[in-house]
Design a protein around this nucleic acid. Sequence first.
DNA 1: CGTAGAAATGAGAATGATTATCATTTTCAG
DNA 2: CTGAAAATGATAATCATTCTCATTTCTACG
Lengths: 135, 135
Amino acid sequence: MMEETHNLNANAQAVLDVLRASEMHPTALEVYRLVKQQRPRIGLATVYRILHQLAEQGRIKELGRDADCCRYDARTTRHDHGICTQCGALLDIPVEIALPLETLQAAAQAAGIELGSHEVRLYGRCTTCQNANKT
Amino acid sequence: MMEETHNLNANAQAVLDVLRASEMHPTALEVYRLVKQQRPRIGLATVYRILHQLAEQGRIKELGRDADCCRYDARTTRHDHGICTQCGALLDIPVEIALPLETLQAAAQAAGIELGSHEVRLYGRCTTCQNANKT
DNA sequence: CGTAGAAATGAGAATGATTATCATTTTCAG
DNA sequence: CTGAAAATGATAATCATTCTCATTTCTACG
């Protein structure tokens, strides 16, 4: 099983293997502990470096951290958000995206979640960042 | 303008006012700095305490932090997530929730975002937490 | 009023995830 | 080999958030 193992070194490959083998979503520390079983000399910093590389290459995804700190919103009515993948800005989306409740219920049930609220998130670059660096 | 100011003390009211007045989504530190202009003796810890209280009361919402650390996923195909509001578990939602691209495009445009990817998030308690404490 | 006990506050330390630093090791073209 | 460049890992630094605890402010109630 070497799939798209092209240009990965042993450490990166070990990290990717751990991630592929795992059913849940491990944290960086958990990945570190697991990888350490195969490569005891690896350091936490290296794991973080590799995780970022793999994410950049699109081989894995980083989840659960949209900005480096929490943001607050006084609008408590439901509305969706746009998140800038570059600067982390959090934008309200004025036009609400309607999702049929039955679809949501079904999905929640499939995931084993007691549905509370929901949110649609759009990821991309905000206008400021688009203007800042025209790639 | 006292609206639903019932049982809020001066500090909490000041925090809520700042949040209501602000167009963007301030971080805790930004809220602290702004509130300090009105109440110079307030401390950062108090701002955090008040923010959590207000969120608990549903007067504001906390955004951008789903767990206390980042989680990784080797599945890079698009799929949605369920997030446990109690333990922070991140669950894949196997049945993808289809959103019409045109709707997304329109919403992204309205928010001024160059649409990259999107995700639907369902918030609620996971099965483990439901069993753990039957409220 | 006066005061005791409770609740709120704020300064600063502690925590925990992540990032930066930097000396050392590994890789590798020539 | 050999020396430059890249990767590594131990450790310190950073940053948001939470905790601690001594002090202050409230709030009945006598």
